[in-house]
Design a protein around this nucleic acid. Structure first.
Lengths: 336, 336
DNA sequence: CTGAAAGCGCTAACAC
DNA sequence: GTGTTAGCGCTTTCAG
């Protein structure tokens, strides 16, 4: 491996000077600089990031700790995050939680020894914070920046950049009500998901704001995961039980797709018999038939917001930590 | 940061001994060992991966270099790869190519200085190998293991673990022919995609094997990306032009979804009027209406195969490098 | 079986 | 403006 020493020798200078040229923070004679640059070129030298990291105490990578990269808009999130981080010369380590809390603790503990600069936590999973707070605290004390992007953890002193799930759900309900689609069912309140919870809260708040009755039998909890099959099952059961509803707000696009399939399988017409609104803004939703109306998340804006926050944080001063809201947008298609 | 030195002091031994206990490869007295372990426990010591990496010359992470994490089964691929790598104590660095070849060269050049152990290349993009081969070679010489998982690059001395795209397409055609769905169209031959090419080859070969005519007007190229809108457009145009076909094999599930939407929008019945087969095995495909028949990829098997190959490779001995084929499976649903 | 010492590649102090 | 030196934390000789 070509090292600073080799470059220095070739340029007839000391390793320190090579380092100075590389850093660009300390003045170097134009002539020396040119010789060093030339040597670097000739030798095809590349600074060793690992050595730099060891020296500096921390490196140039962040971990994206994600609930389930396979689901929903998480792929898009990963893509956007990687792109934005790279713009700042940062690398992205991917760590899939598979929704297991012990895995989160594990990566928190490993972060400092990996030289990670920070940790982007994208899990909607409601965690046992008593068990986790010490791990978070320890990481922050070691200089790890933590930003939560799926649930608001600002109360714990963790900077959060989350979508306006509540507002998004409200907008959806407003729309559904405006087009006379009450009663409205909600699918996807999951006891373990902060996102499911927030979207449900928006649903309930909006009903209340409009003076609409809240009917618990129209809220369909699902055990876990916002998968299409859960939506299918919930809707099928509701239909079997003869529940009366004219529309469904789903906590995810996948869920909504499952719901729509269930309605379609019973020969129901969408949106005439039942209207459906999804949540997420999956590209594929536009190709469901009918095309799905959905509350679209702006993951690109979120990624940019997260990156602009990096380095800015006042480490974990629990009181003042803010939660930044990323606006959502109702995309009207034909399902509602 | 708690270091070996601190642990050593506490246990009353030398740093070397601590290291030996950690490594477990060199015999240590049971007593000493116990004292060291205790000190580690008390201090909450964690070995610094960065220092280890610097010392060893390479670390414990691989890069997953992916064409577009947002598309198709790539999310599933990332998830499975991360899980399997972690089983071997390896971390996964995510690098999204956005289908740009210069980005691949870039990461190849950076790999050694990042201490990467290897590079999992998942891009179907057909690249200018003249421009890339030197970069590949340089990386391999520096000890980077490279495995290609989306296209067969064994001719270049790069171990490849790819799905049996050709066989999968053949099976789909066999099925379509058996159910009297000729003529069969193919959508998704992309000039820049090795995957699109391989699946197309399977389509053409199977037609030939069955003595079916090959009609070029039934092969719909798309400019790039296996997105649903491309499928929608291609199918719409074909229908507008009055082309005669009874079924469509798509090079991806997204594409197929777009195709089905186009047919549905014209009031065509699926599969009675036109049958559709997708490629990939996206979970969502089961909730299209009608449910989509698709050639499912076994990404889990692929990830396991890749990991079992790590460390096994005889670095880039161009002649003998093998291409491992992962079988696909036709999942019959109602669209064909 | 254990300790001392060297060194992976880099950069920040400290001289000059 | 530039060179010398030390040390980030680890493991691996080499002695003992």
């Amino acid at each position: 491996m070509v090292s600073v020493v080799a470059v220095a020798r070739r340029a007839g200078v000391s390793p320190a000077t090579v380092s100075r040229v590389l850093g660009g923070r300390v003045p170097v004679t134009a002539d020396t600089r040119a010789r060093v640059l030339e040597a670097i070129e000739e030798l095809g030298y590349r600074p060793n990031e690992v050595a730099r990291t060891l020296r500096a105490g921390r490196g140039r990578s962040l971990a994206l700790v994600i609930g389930d990269i396979q689901q929903g808009v998480n792929g898009t999130l990963a893509k956007n995050m990687q792109r934005e981080l790279e713009r700042q010369g940062l690398d992205l380590l991917l760590f899939d939680l598979d929704h297991r809390q012990d895995r989160l603790r594990h990566i928190l503990e490993r972060a400092p020894s990996l030289g990670l600069r920070g940790l982007l936590l994208s899990s909607p999973h409601i965690m046992d914070m008593n068990a986790l707070v010490p791990a978070f605290r320890a990481a922050v004390e070691r200089g790890i920046e933590i930003i939560s992007v799926s649930q608001d953890l600002s109360a714990l002193g963790i900077t959060s950049v989350v979508h306006d799930d509540l507002g998004g759900a409200r907008t959806a309900i407003d729309h559904l009500l405006a087009r006379q689609s009450a009663p409205i069912a909600f699918v996807g309140r999951v006891s373990t998901s902060a996102i499911g919870r927030a979207r449900f809260d928006g649903y309930r708040d909006a009903l209340r704001a409009h003076g609409q009755p809240f009917d618990p039998s129209l809220v369909w909890d699902i055990s876990e995961g916002f998968r299409a099959d859960a939506g299918y099952r919930a809707t099928s059961e509701a239909l079997d039980r003869g529940l009366r509803f004219r529309s469904v707000l789903a906590a995810s696009d996948e869920l909504a797709l499952g719901c729509m399939a269930a309605a379609a399988d019973r020969g129901l017409s969408i949106p005439a018999d039942i209207a459906f609104v999804g949540f997420g803004g999956l590209g594929l939703a536009a190709f469901a038939r009918p095309p799905m109306t959905t509350v679209a998340l702006d993951v690109d804006a979120q990624a940019r917001a997260v990156c602009s926050l990096l380095g800015t944080q006042q480490n974990g001063s629990a009181g003042s930590t803010r939660c930044h809201l990323v606006p959502t947008q109702l995309v009207l298609r034909q399902s509602a």
